[in-house]
Nucleic acid binder design. Sequence first.
DNA 1: ATGAGGACCTGCTCGC
DNA 2: TGCGAGCAGGTCCTCA
Length: 347
Amino acid sequence: MPELPEVETVRAGLERHVLGRTIATAAVLNPRAVRRDPTGPAGFTAAMTGRTFTRAERRGKYMWFAMQYLPGGQPTGMGGSRPPSPPAPDVGADGPDRKNRDLVRPASTDDGSADECDEALLVHLGMSGQLLVGEPDRPLSSHVRARFTFADGGDDLRFTDQRTFGHLMVAPLVPAITSLPGESDRAGVDLVPEPISHIAPDPLEPAFDPAAFAARLARRKTGIKRALLDQSLISGIGNIYADEALWRAKLHWARPTETLRRAEVSRLLEAVTDVLSEALKAGGTSFDAQYVNVNGESGYFDVSLNAYGRQGEPCARCGAPIRRDAFMNRSAFSCPRCQPRPRNGHW
DNA sequence: ATGAGGACCTGCTCGC
DNA sequence: TGCGAGCAGGTCCTCA
């Protein structure tokens, strides 16, 4: 299933394939795909039609594509089978060029003022979601939940999702709220979709603040794995990478957060970053130019897993058989020797 | 406010 | 062979 590395691979692929292109038609084939969009399928398709993708961004497992109405952005039937290389405006690494802001659909605020109202297509792939780019007339698989065609007549974009945990929505962009009072606010400057403004930066983005993470972690009263899975504390980590990071850091998954020493938090953070980086490296190598693939089965399995799913197999470090514990109606895999349980309540 | 647990969904695997 | 139970996963919602 798509996790942060796979999502980043998809984001990067779509950045190349859809930026600068204008939506001609949008179709929702399964309403569940847009269940989080307050305007429903009709509102969603209406909001997408005629818009041009201007940026492709990601935080944790969410990605979003900023959209604008550009003048002359809605011609149809141009007949070109392939878009020219996208102009890709506003894709600066930082300090995005906002000169086109005034072209955005004017917001109808109460006092009538023309508020800025950037919006984005927000995407979560869930367990089985994929965003595929390809020939518009290729067969429509039964799992396609939404489809977008472009005004240039080139490749279309399809959201497929077998298990329908993923979703799409159009959402306004707002300043991210990622800091608490007294913490560094350097993470709070980015524009993020409003529904995910509460989500913390992921460890691979510049806005991530290790000190702020450590401080917030210390205030939690829960197990470390549960904390790692809490997207409002640190984003982008799922069950698989949580187990892998804890194995690397030699920490038991149930370790109470308030008992973690400073050095252990650093070790854990380093393990998390390493695991995600390595997985990204492995997952980012395999998609071709025509087909933005997020096939989960070929994604993270390329990464060498030391704990997750290896129940009974010898630990790569010490040889003890990896154990599986029930955790949140799921599993937690760990090495009983490298990641010992507490003795007499002492960690 | 905060933590814990269930619901959501569907394809696959397992056991009877 | 057929069928049901169990499992997997992330996020949102509800309850304590």
